[in-house]
Design a protein around this nucleic acid. Structure first.
Lengths: 141, 141, 141, 141
DNA sequence: GTGGTCTAGACCACA
DNA sequence: GTGGTCTAGACCACA
């Protein structure tokens, strides 16, 4: 389980957590039945307020991605993987659409934009991944 | 001069105006010495609060992009074009970097991402441009 | 718009607000397009924390009952009435089911239970309704 | 002795146990002098934490319903039956009052509510009763 | 230890 | 004035 919080990129912190949990489920690094890091420990690790994590977990619960086990923690729901793959695509596509629209609107040509994209991809490609949680990775009983 | 305000993309409205003015100057559709639409008329056109436009113009003034001519309105500063072209590239690159990082982090491969980008560019390519302001003066590119 | 908050009946305060907003929409005393009381003023009126109201409004928003108008407030969505009538029935039926099950489980006969219900209905019938908000009742523009 | 724990009805688990012990005494299926199931076995049976049962028994003890016999377990006190019949009525009446008030407040007419009650009673009537404890001693009703 | 809920108070963008 | 978000800290039920 990896989290990379970027304060001040315009996306609310709890939304970043929501997305990254979905991403982790989408790519299988977080599996149905698996326990998530406790809200308190995650908040310490990310240096944010516990309530911000609570809010993220609550939203994931209301979307049917996580469920709460009394006194045990939050676990990934069974049907979550498929949903999260859809969400991942929708989230990324939406983000791309916004930036590309802005770029075209700004007067750049599709070719110039493509160039920028390829350059960025090359630069970013290798060095992805950030803060590792001391993942409580055992599937829930 | 065109503006396209998106109320739900997380970017503050005044920031969207700031950016789009810079873009217009960068691509030359707004030229040094040219008058901008009045705050009141622009706010009506975009269906937003006049204060929001005022705030955008103030920021552009503080960045040296616009200057205020007493009783006439805001005009584009002489040196603005070069600065705005730099800003444009920085803003777009920054936006791309954020989305592409997120996409890679989400577990998509560079190839998948490139595909999504090309698809979006094709879809968006033709239909760019939105609300035209009844711009008080328009030499155009 | 009426609210009656009962601290300590086991139902979370924000849930009581959620329900009562749905009820008001279901019975038509709160209509599509109508503005709700502001979170702050409602919290003062009900003598609870503003964040508790915020949470209730957020849940109603995520359920598609309310939508937020930037800087104006929360308004009832167009399709909300039908949904809220369904919700009302589901909520009440669920509550009855729980209590009646408990009563039967406790060893009371259906006849005894019916008697208790009729007695309570007679007692409660007339004196329903409680705290009136100084309802900002104008339909939103 | 039967227990039916509902994990999501807002009532704390230990409270559900407290109530159901009172109900069992009220209807005579648990009689003065009778031993209750041991905390450990009951917790296994209900799939809950032993501490939760302990807490329920403690509360029943403090209310004078149960007393602890060193090394033997908890037994029903002599005067408990009458008290529990009062409690039963109070608990059920209170629950009904809450739901019926909510239903009336929600805009349903007494007639509609009566209908819902009768429907639910018919549906629930036969199939009451759930998890049987391997009760250590059972004179039964 | 876990989540659920609530209070108290802050700053921001927007009308 | 409005909502959106975040911080800080509390108490509860439960494991």
């Amino acid at each position: 389980m990896f989290f990379s919080i970027n304060i001040n990129n315009g996306v609310a912190i709890y939304q970043q957590i929501v997305r990254q949990v979905k991403f982790a489920i989408a790519e299988g690094s977080l599996q149905p039945g698996q326990l998530l890091p406790g809200g308190r420990s995650l908040s310490v690790e990310l240096a944010i307020n516990p309530n911000t994590v609570v809010r993220a977990y609550q939203q994931l619960q209301s979307e049917g991605v996580l469920e709460s086990l009394r006194g045990r923690g939050m676990v990934v729901c069974q049907g979550a993987a498929k949903f999260c793959r859809q969400e991942r695509k929708a989230i990324i596509t939406d983000g791309l659409k916004t930036v590309l629209t802005e770029a075209l609107h700004a007067g750049l040509s599709p070719e110039e934009i493509e160039d920028l994209v390829l350059k960025q991809l090359k630069k970013l490609g290798p060095k992805i991944n950030t803060v590792a949680t001391e993942s409580p990775s055992e599937p829930a009983e």
